[in-house]
Design a binder for these strands. Structure first.
Lengths: 214, 214, 214, 214
DNA sequence: TATGAATGAGTGTTCATTCAT
DNA sequence: TATGAATGAACACTCATTCAT
């Protein structure tokens, strides 16, 4: 839990930067504004960070670390039950809740990922987690439970997870406020409708995969 | 068809700008680079465009106009048959093909849409098309065919279309090259797998809606 | 004579930079001041030069080019007569006069040469000229005249030229004004005395070399 | 001998500063780097010195003090014999050795002296020593020994000493390493050749002066 | 003495935009 | 239409110096 020993000033800088990057994009945000928003001297920013870019990287790394932590926790305590619809929805809600709490960084990550000159879209780091050694451990567990783990196409699972699982959810998180405002729909109702739709589509794929496992 | 009478020089500027905005984002791209890439004098850009921002706007407007044209065409010639799976897949492929051909502008639009300081995400213009008077005409047509058009929840349809229909597809278009490279999967295979997954999820919702209409 | 087609603005920048670098050293001079002194917009400096350092380099290159030109001229027209004291003094005066006219750049070059972190002291370029192919041609000429050219130690000649020939002269050029002011001596008298001393010392070595050649 | 009671920390700062000023020039060196190189906290530098400039001044003052001390010693113990070639060479070697041991400060002093905006080139302090009261005492001694002291031109002697005596030697000290490396000559051989040349030139003037004294 | 954090003024450089021709 | 030159306002980043402890 390294988050604890981050100096207060550094934290203020990170928060201000997160807000401004989310508002105007990394390139559109100004270091002067970050300093002002954080209520610190501009030079102090360079006392804590080597460059503007490094602030961005720290934001991303923190997000990934925390997501990894959460994932390890789920895998570790064996609370995952893919047969139970409620359990699956619960896990999904946990993921959604986490992302919601990190919506600004998510937004920034999505923007940066879209630049085609970037070598690797930062968003891919999400999928890398799903491919890490912990994923292997998860496979073990399911194999032990009697599932035909080797029947499932890992590439396809990854693709589904990213494009039809994550992208709709992340998009919803970053657009919901503007959507409800622009299309005149109550935020709560919007959320209900989105989840209804998302569950129909996403669980459809889940069922296909379950069949293969059994 | 105003596209026709655009001067060659202006076209070169638009193409160069599209490429560079896609690579580095609107704020990350430099007018100098656009001029160099287009092979024209920098000052000339300001002869054709009031500002850098106006280039962006023209890019967006052109995309929307062409999309609208395509939509009107589909609605107009009555070739839409929501009962036929093949027809639905055909329409989807047409949409996908069009977006694919415009991937750079899509990419830019996605980036700009993410800035939370923006009043309205440019991407919402896609959904506005689906709500326009033409959509009303479509409803008429289906009512005439005997469908219970009023049974369907337009808000929900729009949400589904945007978040679970468009976002996965657009994401796939902008990320597929990097994905196949990064996760070591053949581009053709990747495309096949994505569409398999996408059809499972997306058509699941289509079926639910069909039931309501009948 | 490329000097001719240098734009007037660029020339003004070079002159202002030369003056300020000489006054405060390269690191001590400010680009803002150069712009102001040259009477041009600061950004214009970066229209003509890639960086502050590039201004310096152009100053150095121009000096070296002109010195090379002068050297080639002397070698080329065969006006050098090492037996005649008057001729030797004449050549020396020509060299001195040239350096005098370039005193600011000389000053800067001397400063930059002293930084021990610099790979090669820019001043060494002076000695490189004396080692170039033109020097070989000069040897040829003297061999033809019947001199025992191979008797002279080229390393030693170079060392003498640099440390006991050039350094006193260049030092005199850059310090004479301050010297006459500080030690209360009339500038003309100072010059006379310096040359008396310098000729005594420098010609002493010249005689030693002449003996070897005969 | 105030050198004795300088605190160890202050000494480390002075050494680090000397090294960095010599590498990058006074303006090119950073206080941060000095602190890091000295292994002390940056703020501590301001405990021992009022400013960056003051470090420079202390470096210069120490050099001058030590040089003065050495000079006084020579004058005081009457070991100077201007008639003996060996004795003259010995004195020269002592001077050279001292300068060699102080090469970094010499280098810095030479750089700072070149700035034309400086009121007085710090290097002139060397010549001031030769004009001080101690020099007067020396004159007394020689007068007592029967020399026609008043025959010699003090201005000329000073000029000769500085421009054809000191400058070649100091230049050699600061450039010899780079020279041997760049012109591919063995350091020992370089030194031998330089001194051969320097003695020829410098002693030529010494002889002229001796004649006047006798 | 010693230090980590903080600061104001600045530093070289870049940018979108405009001007004169 | 087209261009080389010019500009003002910023830009990310740096610096010597100081403060609180």
């Amino acid at each position: 839990m390294k988050t604890k020993d981050v100096p207060k000033t550094k934290l203020k800088i990170l928060e201000a930067a997160e807000k401004l990057f989310a508002e105007k994009g990394f390139d559109g945000a100004r270091v002067d504004d970050i300093a002002e928003n954080a209520g610190v001297n501009k030079a102090l920013i360079y006392y804590y960070f080597k460059s503007k870019r490094e602030i961005l990287e720290e934001l991303f790394n923190t997000l990934i670390e925390e997501l990894l932590e959460m994932t390890l926790d789920i895998v570790g305590n064996g609370s995952l039950d893919i047969e139970s619809m409620e359990n699956m929805q619960g896990q999904m809600q946990r993921f959604y809740g986490f992302m919601e709490s990190k919506k600004d960084t998510i937004r920034i990550m999505m923007m940066e990922s879209l630049k085609s000159s970037k070598e690797k879209p930062p968003l891919f780091r999400f999928s890398e987690i799903a491919m890490s050694e912990e994923a292997e451990r998860l496979k073990e567990i399911f194999r032990d439970k009697g599932y035909n783990v080797d029947n499932i196409d890992m590439d396809e699972a990854l693709i589904a997870d990213f494009f039809t699982g994550m992208m709709p959810q992340l998009s919803f998180i970053v657009y919901k406020d503007k959507w409800s405002e622009h299309f005149h729909i109550d935020p709560e109702e919007l959320k209900r409708k989105f989840f209804r739709v998302f569950l129909i589509t996403h669980l459809a794929f889940h069922k296909v995969q379950l069949d293969k496992l059994r």
